[in-house]
C-alpha cells in the first residue's frame, strides 16, 4: 500500500508540473496548448545534444532558454498574429505546432530511444519504511515541490505575477490599465515551457528519450489540469497528485488492464459533481 501511494505521488507530482504549464497558458490565453508536451520534448533533446560539449548544467541552461524562447516565439509570432482565429482554430494551431516539433525531432534526432543522462540514478534506491524510493524519484519530488513553490512566489509575490493575475481576471481591463499584454503573454508561455521542460527532464531517464515520449505524460497532465480546474494553480497540483495516486492504486489493486478507463470514469464522475474542476473558479454566466 505504502509503495503504491509513493509511486502514485511521485508520478502525480510530475503530472502536476506538466499541468501547471497548461494551466498557466490557459489562464492567460483561454487556450489549450497541445504543443506543451512536444515543446518540452524538443528541449529535453537539446539537453541531450548539448550535454556532451557543455556539460549537463550548461546544456540544461541552453535548453531552458531555447524552450522559453520557442514558446514565447510561437505565442508572439504565430498565435497573436492570427487575429481572426477562433478558439478552436488556435487549438488546432497548437496541434500543428506540436506536429512540427515532433516531426523536426524525428528528422534531427531519429526515432530510436536514447538514454537520457541525468545526475540522479533511477536504479539507486533508499528504503522508506516498507517502501523503496529511487534517487531520481526523490529528486523529482523535491524539484517538483521547488517548482511549485517558485511558481507560487512568482504569481503571488512579484509584480509580474500581479500582472498575470490581473490579466487572467480581465484581459480587457488589464490592457486598458497599460499592462504590456503581449509581452505578458509571451512571458507566460515562456514560464510554461520551462515547467514542461523540467517535467520532461525528470521523465526522460525513466521513459527514455524519443520524439513521442511526452505524448502520454502530456495527456495525463492535461487531464490533471482539467480535473483540478483549468484556471486554478493549486488545482493543477491537486489534480496531478490525485490522478497519479488514483492510477497507481487502480493498477495495484483493481486492474492493470483498465487503469486509464477506470481513472477516466472516476474523473467524469468528479467533474459531473463539480463541472468547473475541483478547485476551479465557479463561473457565473450572464445572459
Amino acid at each position: 500500500m505504502l509503495q503504491y501511494l509513493l509511486n502514485g505521488i511521485a508520478t502525480g507530482a510530475l503530472y502536476s508540473v506538466i499541468a501547471l504549464g497548461i494551466v498557466l497558458v490557459y489562464r492567460t490565453s483561454r487556450l489549450l496548448n497541445f504543443a506543451h508536451g512536444d515543446l518540452a520534448m524538443v528541449a529535453v533533446f537539446l539537453v541531450w545534444s548539448f550535454s556532451r560539449p557543455l556539460g549537463f548544467p550548461g546544456a540544461v541552461a541552453v535548453a531552458l532558454l531555447a524552450a522559453t524562447a520557442l514558446g514565447a516565439a510561437f505565442s508572439f509570432g504565430v498565435l497573436q498574429q492570427v487575429k481572426e482565429a477562433t478558439l478552436l482554430g488556435q487549438v488546432v494551431l497548437t496541434l500543428g505546432f506540436s506536429q512540427v516539433l515532433s516531426g523536426a525531432a524525428l528528422v534531427v534526432w531519429g526515432a530510436d530511444s536514447k538514454p537520457f543522462p541525468f545526475p540522479l540514478s533511477s536504479v539507486v534506491t533508499y528504503r522508506l519504511g516498507g517502501a523503496v524510493i529511487s534517487q531520481l524519484t526523490l529528486g523529482s519530488l523535491v524539484i517538483a515541490l521547488v517548482l511549485m513553490a517558485g511558481l507560487y512566489l512568482l504569481i503571488q509575490q512579484t509584480r509580474v505575477g500581479l500582472a498575470m493575475r490581473a490579466y487572467s481576471q480581465d484581459p480587457e481591463a488589464a490592457r486598458l490599465l497599460g499592462l504590456p499584454t503581449r509581452r505578458l503573454l509571451a512571458f507566460t508561455w515562456g514560464v510554461a515551457a520551462l515547467l514542461g521542460t523540467a517535467a520532461g527532464m525528470l521523465l526522460a531517464p525513466v521513459t527514455f528519450l524519443h520524439p513521442y515520449f511526452m505524448l502520454t505524460p502530456f495527456l495525463k497532465g492535461f487531464t490533471a489540469a482539467v480535473l483540478g480546474g483549468l484556471d486554478s494553480v493549486p488545482g493543477a497540483i491537486v489534480g496531478g497528485l490525485l490522478l497519479g495516486v488514483m492510477e497507481s492504486l487502480f493498477a495495484g489493486y483493481v486492474s492493470l488492464r483498465f487503469v486509464s478507463t477506470l481513472s477516466f470514469a472516476l474523473i467524469v464522475v468528479m467533474l459531473l459533481v463539480r463541472p468547473e474542476g475541483l478547485l476551479g473558479r465557479v463561473f457565473q454566466r450572464r445572459v
Binding site: 504565430v78 488546432v92 494551431l93 496541434l95 500543428g96 505546432f97 506540436s98 506536429q99 512540427v100 516539433l101 515532433s102 516531426g103 523536426a104 524525428l106 528528422v107
Partner: peptide, 9 residues
C-alpha cells in the same frame, strides 16, 4: 510529420 504540421499551421 514536419510538413504535415507546417501545412496545418
Amino acid at each position: 510529420p514536419l510538413v504535415f504540421g507546417l501545412i496545418i499551421m
